[in-house]
C-alpha cells in the first residue's frame, strides 16, 4: 500500500462500519414512522354538515378528524362586538372577516379544541357558560374566547383554529 499509513484493512473497516451505521439508521425510519397517523386516520379528512337548522345565536358541535368543530351562527350584536375590538391589542391579532368566509361572516366555524392543551371549551351547547367575552370558556385552565373565538384571557396562546372549509350551498358546509 501507499506510504501514508492507510492500510487496506482501515478502508474495509470504515466502509463496513459506515454501511452498517447507515443500515441501522434506515431501519429506524419505519420504527418511528409507524407511530404517525395511519392511512385510515388520514382518510377521514372531510365531512359535510347541514347548517340550515342553526338559528342566529345558536351553535352546534360537529365532528371532524374525531375532534369537535363548533359551527356558530352569530347574531348581529355578536358580530358588532367582535368588530369593535382593537385588533392590535389581541394576543393573536385577527379580524372576524379573516376568520370567516366573505359574505357569510355570521358563520363562525372553528375547532372546538382549546389551543392551550386541547380541552373542549364550553359555549356551543345550550345553556353552557360562554365566558366574560360572550364566546367560549375553557373550564380546564380558564381560557376565555370572544365572539370571534379569539383568545382574550387565560393561558391559551392562539385563537380557536379555523379548519379549512367551504360552503357547498347556502345550507351545507364542507369541512376539510
Amino acid at each position: 500500500m501507499a506510504g501514508d499509513g492507510v492500510r487496506r484493512r482501515d478502508f474495509i473497516n470504515i466502509a463496513a462500519v459506515s454501511f452498517a451505521g447507515v443500515g441501522g439508521l434506515a431501519a429506524l425510519y419505519p420504527l418511528i414512522s409507524q407511530m404517525a397517523p395511519s392511512a385510515d386516520v388520514l382518510a377521514e379528512s372531510s365531512t359535510e354538515i347541514d347548517i340550515s337548522a342553526i338559528a342566529p345565536g345558536q351553535a352546534i358541535k360537529a365532528v371532524w378528524r374525531k375532534q369537535p368543530v363548533f359551527i356558530r351562527n352569530l347574531t348581529p350584536e355578536e358580530i358588532k362586538s367582535a368588530d369593535a375590538v382593537d385588533v392590535a391589542s389581541l394576543r393573536d391579532p385577527q379580524t372576524l372577516e379573516q376568520r370567516t368566509t366573505a359574505g357569510k361572516t355570521n358563520w363562525l366555524i372553528t375547532m372546538g379544541v382549546c389551543t392551550h392543551l386541547g380541552c373542549v371549551p364550553l359555549g356551543a351547547g345550550e345553556g353552557e357558560v360562554k365566558g366574560e367575552f360572550g364566546g367560549y370558556f375553557c373550564p380546564c385552565h380558564g381560557s376565555v374566547y370572544d365572539t370571534a373565538a379569539r383568545i382574550r384571557k387565560g393561558p391559551a396562546p392562539k385563537n380557536l383554529e379555523v379548519p379549512p372549509h367551504e360552503f357547498s350551498s347556502d345550507t351545507v358546509v364542507k369541512i376539510g
Binding site: M35, A36, P37, S38, V41, R65, K66, Q67, V113, G118
Partner: peptide
Amino acid sequence: EWLLGGFAPDNA
C-alpha cells in the same frame, strides 16, 4: 400528532 398517531387520542 406523531405521539398520538392521530389528531386526537384514539385507538392508535
